[in-house]
């Protein structure tokens, strides 16, 4: 399952600042719902984590110590992260929710990981331990965009799960 090209191409040309603002908004929302999210990271809280959607030219870099999220072009992300995970956007979002097993996705080669494996493992477990539910968490966003985010979240999940379970079977 890949991010639709029709969406991916415009994203590639959208101003980074706009994407980063949107990502930041979602990130803060999730943190508000899950204030303990990064508690499991322990000593790895000071590390920088890159989430690299293989179907987008973008890198999302999370610094739990901030906490903050940055968005850069992939070509420009050299040395910005201590550990990174790369895979289709839908799978990365499913992982965020703990709806897919990261080990299984690694075995099937759908995900690849590089850098500080201990930090990445801690992040995986922290995300898995939190009960992130994107449609629920994002629909609580105040303002006129709320229903849109909620619908987008559900759509992402539906596609991720369909895409994945069909492969597992």
């Amino acid at each position: 399952m890949e991010f639709p090209r029709a969406l991916a191409i415009p994203l590639a040309y959208m101003p980074l600042a706009a994407i980063e603002r949107a990502a930041g908004l979602l990130f803060q929302r999730v943190l508000k719902e899950h204030p303990d999210l990064f508690e499991r990271l322990g000593e790895y809280k000071s590390k920088r984590f890159a989430f690299l959607p293989s179907d987008l030219p973008l890198a999302f870099i999370v610094e739990p110590a901030g906490p903050s999220i940055r968005v850069t072009r992939k070509q420009a992300m050299q040395d910005l992260a201590d550990a990174s995970v790369e895979g289709p956007l839908f799978l990365l979002l499913a992982l965020l929710e703990g709806r897919c097993d990261a080990d299984a996705l690694f075995f099937s080669r759908d995900l690849s990981v590089t850098g500080d494996m201990e930090a990445m493992l801690a992040m995986r477990n922290a995300l898995d331990g939190a009960d992130i539910d994107l449609p629920r968490d994002l629909s609580r966003l105040a303002g006129p965009l709320a229903p849109l985010f909620g619908e987008m979240g559900r759509d992402i999940r539906r596609r991720a799960l369909n895409g994945e379970t069909s492969r597992w079977n």
Binding site: G98, R99, A102, D103, A104, D128, G129
Partner: peptide, 10 residues
Amino acid sequence: RQRGKAYVAE
């Protein structure tokens, strides 16, 4: 025990 909750549930 090292696997994700999705694995455990499944």
